[in-house]
Amino acid sequence: MDVNMLQNILLTIATASTPLLLAAIGELVVERSGVLNLGVEGMMVIGAVCGFAGAFITGSPWIGALAGILAGVLLSLLFGFLALSLATNQVATGLSLTLLGIGLSGMIGEDFVGRAGIRLPRLDLPVLSDLPLVGKLLFGQDPLFYVSIALTAAVMWFLFKTRTGLTLRSIGDNHKSAHALGINVLLYRYLAVMFGGACAGLAGAHLSLVYTPQWVENMTAGRGWIALALVVFASWRPWRVIGGAYLFGAVTIGQIHAQALGIPIPSQLMSALPYLATIVVLVLISRDRRLTVINTPASLAQPFVPDR
């Protein structure tokens, strides 16, 4: 294996992991505020189709990315209206949102099937991008890769270093006492849900503008569910989401390489490896009960209605 091949493999892993990371980091903030939105898959797929449509119509993939974000936010507002304003059951509402999102994306996307997509341009810095081994990895990736890393850092800083972040976490832990302290619980939660929608929409746009620049119905193919699982995997800690997303991506790509090398293991077992690996690693890291309890939002998925 030469240096170039190693770099290429790492780049492939990064591309596969980025949409998972984007969607998961958004959902992490949502869940930290005490809301469980199981509609990530639906918001992602809407982001994918609107991202593609935006880029296709305007010719600018940047506008496409914005369209993806916007679409994700709009769909998340629908969830917010039901789950927050009307205090409906969050699990059922999120699942219904996924059904709606998949149907809606199919309707929107009918005219875009089979059309050539537009790719978000990769970063290209003189000299730096051409460095051996790390050049492309550090300085030559698609913009959303950098966004995903920066976003994770920003969420980490926001949740643990800012007052607003502390407030958000306290709402997730106990919305009643937060309310008693005069905090507008629903407002925070709406904003968190919208942030989650934006991230899921962007993750979808990554699929249709970076990963595979085209629109195919259901192109998220279950990645929204993986993102949801990664939030749990991370025990609601942002840096662990990076770990989870890249672990999942690495095992996925690794098993493909193993297959291409002709290693005689059933392909079904190979395809199951990412899921098994995630379970095993989570078992290993979640044995410290105390740490897990501290980080789990205690009022997750419980509806909140301000009493008067």
């Binding site: 629908l78 039901l82 009307l86 409906t88 059951n89 059922a92 509402t93 219904s96 949102l97 059904l99 709606l100 999102g101 998949i102 149907g103 809606l104 199919g106 309707m107 009918e110």
Partner: peptide, 17 residues
Amino acid sequence: SEKVARVFQGLLLFFVL
């Protein structure tokens, strides 16, 4: 189309909830 049916199904669930 099947997509419309899916959207309609989602809406129905929203209304019930």
